[in-house]
């Protein structure tokens, strides 16, 4: 029996956080459904989970800047701040450069919401189990 509450809750707290971030991302895609030149984005969930859990993600090669004039490569851009953010592969980009597919985003949003609720249910059950253990009834 793990003693720390963090350990007891396990991966679900992190999952909830990452799901909330994905909600924002897709909300942003939908809000920008009519913005010219906007590129739809989504996240690599596995990478985001691994990063949120404090693990090292593989394949992250960074350039080292040792002089003032050096260009930082990926580490100085927003790609480094959010390595798990990816651009969606457009199925049918609009003429104005917008790659948001409203139906696809809606589906992704619904899926994400359901999974968020599933995570909430897991957490709720864990807490209920803990309560039962404490109260003994």
């Amino acid at each position: 029996m793990p003693t720390s509450l963090d350990q007891y809750v396990g991966v679900h707290a992190t999952a909830l956080d990452v799901r909330a971030r994905r909600t924002e991302l897709i909300a942003n895609n939908l809000a920008n459904a009519d913005t010219p030149g906007f590129k739809a984005r989504d996240m690599d969930f596995r990478a985001a989970m691994a990063r949120a859990a404090g693990e090292q993600t593989t394949g992250g090669v960074h350039l080292t800047t040792t002089q003032a004039g050096h260009i930082g490569g990926a580490s100085s851009t927003e790609a480094a701040a959010n390595p798990d953010l990816k651009y969606r592969t457009p199925l049918a980009p609009a003429l104005d450069g917008n790659t948001v597919d409203a139906q696809l985003e809606q589906a992704a949003f619904a899926e994400n919401a359901v999974r968020y609720q599933a995570t909430l249910t897991f957490l709720n059950n864990k807490f209920r189990g803990l309560l039962t253990a404490i109260m003994g009834s």
């Binding site: 971030r21 924002e24 991302l25 942003n28 809000a31 920008n32 984005r41 927003e78 701040a81 953010l85």
Partner: peptide, 10 residues
Amino acid sequence: ARDGNANAAV
């Protein structure tokens, strides 16, 4: 922010 999204609104 580690959890900062690159995009914020329209």
